[in-house]
Protein backbone atom coordinates (compact mmCIF):
# COMPACT_ATOMS: atom_id res chain seq x y z
CA UNK A 1 0.00 0.00 0.00
CA UNK A 2 1.37 3.37 -1.00
CA UNK A 3 0.21 6.85 -0.10
CA UNK A 4 0.56 9.08 -3.10
CA UNK A 5 0.24 12.80 -2.69
CA UNK A 6 1.70 16.10 -3.78
CA UNK A 7 3.94 18.83 -2.47
CA UNK A 8 3.50 22.29 -3.97
CA UNK A 9 6.29 24.81 -3.54
CA UNK A 10 4.49 28.14 -3.34
CA UNK A 11 7.76 30.03 -3.52
CA UNK A 12 8.33 28.62 -6.98
CA UNK A 13 4.67 28.94 -8.03
CA UNK A 14 4.00 32.17 -9.90
CA UNK A 15 0.25 31.67 -10.09
CA UNK A 16 0.11 31.29 -13.87
CA UNK A 17 -2.73 28.76 -13.96
CA UNK A 18 -0.97 26.33 -16.31
CA UNK A 19 -1.78 23.49 -13.88
CA UNK A 20 -5.50 24.14 -14.06
CA UNK A 21 -5.57 24.64 -17.80
CA UNK A 22 -3.50 21.58 -18.65
CA UNK A 23 -5.51 19.47 -16.24
CA UNK A 24 -8.60 20.22 -18.30
CA UNK A 25 -6.59 19.39 -21.40
CA UNK A 26 -5.36 16.03 -20.08
CA UNK A 27 -8.62 14.91 -18.57
CA UNK A 28 -11.12 16.17 -21.15
CA UNK A 29 -12.81 18.28 -18.48
CA UNK A 30 -15.90 20.25 -19.50
CA UNK A 31 -16.27 23.99 -19.40
CA UNK A 32 -16.49 25.51 -15.90
CA UNK A 33 -15.60 22.25 -14.19
CA UNK A 34 -12.22 22.29 -12.49
CA UNK A 35 -10.29 19.32 -11.15
CA UNK A 36 -7.32 21.55 -10.49
CA UNK A 37 -8.00 25.15 -9.67
CA UNK A 38 -6.76 27.82 -7.28
CA UNK A 39 -7.53 30.01 -4.32
CA UNK A 40 -6.45 33.59 -4.45
CA UNK A 41 -6.45 36.34 -1.92
CA UNK A 42 -5.39 39.95 -1.78
CA UNK A 43 -4.82 41.23 1.76
CA UNK A 44 -3.61 44.47 3.28
CA UNK A 45 -4.19 48.07 2.37
CA UNK A 46 -2.46 49.96 -0.43
CA UNK A 47 0.54 50.15 -0.67
CA UNK A 48 1.15 47.34 1.80
CA UNK A 49 -0.63 44.65 -0.12
CA UNK A 50 -0.06 40.95 -0.37
CA UNK A 51 -1.39 38.74 -3.12
CA UNK A 52 -1.43 35.01 -2.64
CA UNK A 53 -2.22 32.28 -5.07
CA UNK A 54 -2.69 28.71 -3.94
CA UNK A 55 -3.17 26.00 -6.54
CA UNK A 56 -5.72 23.42 -5.46
CA UNK A 57 -6.70 19.91 -6.46
CA UNK A 58 -8.14 16.82 -4.82
CA UNK A 59 -6.19 16.26 -1.62
CA UNK A 60 -6.44 12.48 -1.92
CA UNK A 61 -7.09 12.49 1.80
CA UNK A 62 -6.05 9.49 3.86
CA UNK A 63 -9.34 9.78 5.66
CA UNK A 64 -11.43 11.00 2.77
CA UNK A 65 -14.82 12.41 3.71
CA UNK A 66 -16.11 11.80 0.19
CA UNK A 67 -15.29 8.10 0.45
CA UNK A 68 -17.07 7.89 3.78
CA UNK A 69 -20.17 9.63 2.54
CA UNK A 70 -20.56 7.80 -0.74
CA UNK A 71 -23.52 5.43 -0.49
CA UNK A 72 -22.32 3.12 -3.26
CA UNK A 73 -18.54 2.97 -2.80
CA UNK A 74 -18.17 4.75 -6.11
CA UNK A 75 -15.73 7.03 -4.32
CA UNK A 76 -12.96 4.81 -3.02
CA UNK A 77 -9.30 4.57 -2.11
CA UNK A 78 -6.98 2.60 -4.36
CA UNK A 79 -3.76 0.77 -3.60
CA UNK A 80 -1.70 3.93 -4.23
CA UNK A 81 -3.71 5.79 -1.65
CA UNK A 82 -5.47 7.76 -4.35
CA UNK A 83 -9.06 8.78 -3.91
CA UNK A 84 -10.74 7.57 -7.06
CA UNK A 85 -14.23 7.58 -8.44
CA UNK A 86 -15.98 4.76 -10.23
CA UNK A 87 -18.38 6.37 -12.68
CA UNK A 88 -20.31 3.12 -13.12
CA UNK A 89 -21.22 2.99 -9.44
CA UNK A 90 -22.00 6.67 -9.02
CA UNK A 91 -25.68 7.46 -8.50
CA UNK A 92 -25.16 11.20 -8.63
CA UNK A 93 -26.36 11.87 -5.07
CA UNK A 94 -23.68 14.53 -4.57
CA UNK A 95 -23.08 13.51 -0.95
CA UNK A 96 -19.36 13.50 -1.72
CA UNK A 97 -19.57 17.09 -2.92
CA UNK A 98 -21.23 18.05 0.36
CA UNK A 99 -18.73 16.11 2.41
CA UNK A 100 -15.56 17.28 0.66
CA UNK A 101 -14.07 20.17 2.63
CA UNK A 102 -12.23 21.38 -0.47
CA UNK A 103 -14.94 21.80 -3.10
CA UNK A 104 -12.96 19.80 -5.63
CA UNK A 105 -15.69 17.42 -6.75
CA UNK A 106 -17.94 18.54 -9.59
CA UNK A 107 -21.26 17.28 -10.86
CA UNK A 108 -22.22 16.92 -14.49
CA UNK A 109 -25.57 18.67 -14.53
CA UNK A 110 -25.78 18.43 -18.31
CA UNK A 111 -24.51 16.27 -21.10
CA UNK A 112 -20.86 17.30 -21.22
CA UNK A 113 -19.13 19.46 -23.82
CA UNK A 114 -22.21 21.13 -25.28
CA UNK A 115 -19.73 23.63 -26.74
CA UNK A 116 -18.62 21.00 -29.23
CA UNK A 117 -22.16 20.03 -30.16
CA UNK A 118 -23.26 23.59 -30.81
CA UNK A 119 -24.49 24.09 -34.36
CA UNK A 120 -24.35 27.88 -34.45
CA UNK A 121 -21.85 29.58 -36.72
CA UNK A 122 -21.36 33.33 -36.60
CA UNK A 123 -21.09 33.62 -40.39
CA UNK A 124 -23.25 31.17 -42.29
CA UNK A 125 -21.06 28.91 -44.43
CA UNK A 126 -18.10 31.17 -43.70
CA UNK A 127 -17.13 30.20 -40.17
CA UNK A 128 -17.33 26.83 -38.51
CA UNK A 129 -19.36 25.70 -35.51
CA UNK A 130 -18.47 23.62 -32.50
CA UNK A 131 -20.07 20.52 -33.89
CA UNK A 132 -18.65 20.96 -37.36
CA UNK A 133 -15.15 21.37 -35.93
CA UNK A 134 -15.47 18.29 -33.74
CA UNK A 135 -16.86 16.32 -36.66
CA UNK A 136 -14.14 17.38 -39.06
CA UNK A 137 -11.49 16.44 -36.55
CA UNK A 138 -13.33 13.25 -35.70
CA UNK A 139 -13.42 13.37 -31.93
CA UNK A 140 -15.98 14.41 -29.31
CA UNK A 141 -13.73 17.34 -28.42
CA UNK A 142 -11.15 18.17 -31.09
CA UNK A 143 -8.27 17.77 -28.64
CA UNK A 144 -9.86 14.79 -26.88
CA UNK A 145 -7.20 12.83 -25.01
CA UNK A 146 -7.87 9.09 -25.46
CA UNK A 147 -5.33 8.19 -22.75
CA UNK A 148 -7.71 9.41 -20.09
CA UNK A 149 -10.09 6.59 -20.87
CA UNK A 150 -7.57 3.98 -19.75
CA UNK A 151 -8.75 4.22 -16.14
CA UNK A 152 -11.80 6.48 -16.11
CA UNK A 153 -14.60 7.48 -18.44
CA UNK A 154 -12.81 9.47 -21.14
CA UNK A 155 -15.56 12.06 -20.79
CA UNK A 156 -17.74 11.71 -17.75
CA UNK A 157 -21.40 11.49 -18.51
CA UNK A 158 -24.37 13.50 -17.34
CA UNK A 159 -25.63 12.75 -13.85
CA UNK A 160 -22.41 11.73 -12.15
CA UNK A 161 -19.66 13.56 -10.35
CA UNK A 162 -16.02 13.77 -11.37
CA UNK A 163 -12.74 14.77 -9.81
CA UNK A 164 -8.95 14.73 -9.97
CA UNK A 165 -7.42 11.27 -10.03
CA UNK A 166 -3.85 12.53 -9.65
CA UNK A 167 -3.60 11.31 -13.24
CA UNK A 168 -3.73 7.69 -12.12
CA UNK A 169 -3.60 6.71 -15.79
CA UNK A 170 -0.24 8.45 -16.12
CA UNK A 171 1.10 7.21 -12.79
CA UNK A 172 0.26 3.70 -13.95
CA UNK A 173 2.57 4.22 -16.91
CA UNK A 174 5.33 5.65 -14.74
CA UNK A 175 4.58 9.22 -15.84
CA UNK A 176 4.03 12.26 -13.68
CA UNK A 177 0.57 13.79 -13.44
CA UNK A 178 0.13 16.25 -16.29
CA UNK A 179 -0.08 19.28 -14.02
CA UNK A 180 3.32 18.34 -12.61
CA UNK A 181 4.86 18.00 -16.06
CA UNK A 182 3.33 21.19 -17.36
CA UNK A 183 4.10 23.45 -14.41
CA UNK A 184 6.67 25.83 -15.92
CA UNK A 185 7.99 26.64 -12.45
CA UNK A 186 8.56 23.04 -11.45
CA UNK A 187 6.61 23.78 -8.29
CA UNK A 188 4.85 20.43 -8.03
CA UNK A 189 6.26 17.15 -6.80
CA UNK A 190 4.29 13.93 -6.60
CA UNK A 191 5.35 10.87 -4.68
CA UNK A 192 4.65 8.23 -2.10
CA UNK A 193 4.50 9.49 1.48
CA UNK A 194 4.98 5.91 2.70
CA UNK A 195 8.36 5.79 1.03
CA UNK A 196 10.74 7.50 3.40
CA UNK A 197 13.20 8.19 0.57
CA UNK A 198 10.66 9.86 -1.68
CA UNK A 199 11.15 13.41 -2.87
CA UNK A 200 7.86 14.47 -1.30
CA UNK A 201 9.01 13.28 2.10
CA UNK A 202 12.32 15.07 1.69
CA UNK A 203 10.52 18.29 0.85
CA UNK A 204 8.19 18.23 3.81
CA UNK A 205 11.12 17.36 6.04
CA UNK A 206 13.17 20.26 4.68
CA UNK A 207 10.49 22.93 4.87
CA UNK A 208 7.64 23.41 7.20
CA UNK A 209 4.55 22.47 5.35
CA UNK A 210 0.92 23.35 5.47
CA UNK A 211 -2.26 21.60 4.42
CA UNK A 212 -5.59 23.11 3.58
CA UNK A 213 -8.15 22.82 6.39
CA UNK A 214 -6.27 20.28 8.44
CA UNK A 215 -8.96 20.69 11.11
CA UNK A 216 -11.45 19.05 8.78
CA UNK A 217 -9.70 15.88 9.88
CA UNK A 218 -9.53 14.22 6.51
CA UNK A 219 -5.72 13.97 6.50
CA UNK A 220 -5.17 15.69 3.17
CA UNK A 221 -2.11 14.67 1.17
CA UNK A 222 -1.44 17.88 -0.72
CA UNK A 223 1.21 19.76 1.22
CA UNK A 224 2.25 23.33 0.62
CA UNK A 225 5.79 24.42 1.36
CA UNK A 226 7.23 27.94 1.60
CA UNK A 227 5.02 30.89 0.71
CA UNK A 228 3.81 32.57 -2.45
Amino acid sequence: MARYGMVIDLHKCVGCGACGITCKNENNVDRDIFWAHHLKDTTGVFPNVKYEFVPTLCNHCDDAACVKSCPTKAMHKDDKGLTLHDPKKCIGCKSCMQACPYEVISFNYNAPHAFWRDLASVIDKGTASGQETAQEVGAPIPYYNPDRAATYEGIRSKGIVEKCTLCDHRLAKGEQPYCVDSCPAGARTVGDFDDSASEVNKLIAQYCSRQLKPHAGTKPKVFYIRSF
Binding site: C16, G17, A18, I21, T22, N25, F115, W116, D118, S121, V122, I123, K125, G126, T127, A128, S129, G130, E132, T133, V137, P142, Y143, S182, P184
Partner: peptide
Protein backbone atom coordinates in the same frame (compact mmCIF):
# COMPACT_ATOMS: atom_id res chain seq x y z
CA UNK B 1 11.61 22.67 -22.24
CA UNK B 2 8.83 24.66 -20.62
CA UNK B 3 5.92 26.64 -21.93
CA UNK B 4 3.80 29.18 -20.11
CA UNK B 5 -0.02 28.85 -20.06
CA UNK B 6 -0.25 30.55 -23.45
CA UNK B 7 1.16 27.53 -25.26
CA UNK B 8 -1.74 25.40 -24.17
CA UNK B 9 -4.36 27.97 -25.15
CA UNK B 10 -3.06 27.69 -28.71
CA UNK B 11 -4.83 24.34 -29.00
CA UNK B 12 -8.19 25.96 -28.47
CA UNK B 13 -7.19 28.65 -30.93
CA UNK B 14 -6.46 25.98 -33.54
CA UNK B 15 -9.82 24.33 -32.97
CA UNK B 16 -11.75 27.55 -32.46
CA UNK B 17 -15.30 26.89 -33.71
CA UNK B 18 -15.45 30.45 -34.99
CA UNK B 19 -12.56 30.06 -37.41
CA UNK B 20 -12.98 31.35 -40.91
CA UNK B 21 -13.03 28.14 -42.91
CA UNK B 22 -13.19 29.38 -46.51
CA UNK B 23 -12.43 32.61 -48.36
CA UNK B 24 -15.33 35.06 -48.17
Amino acid sequence: GKTCPRGHLAIQQLYDPDRVKVPM
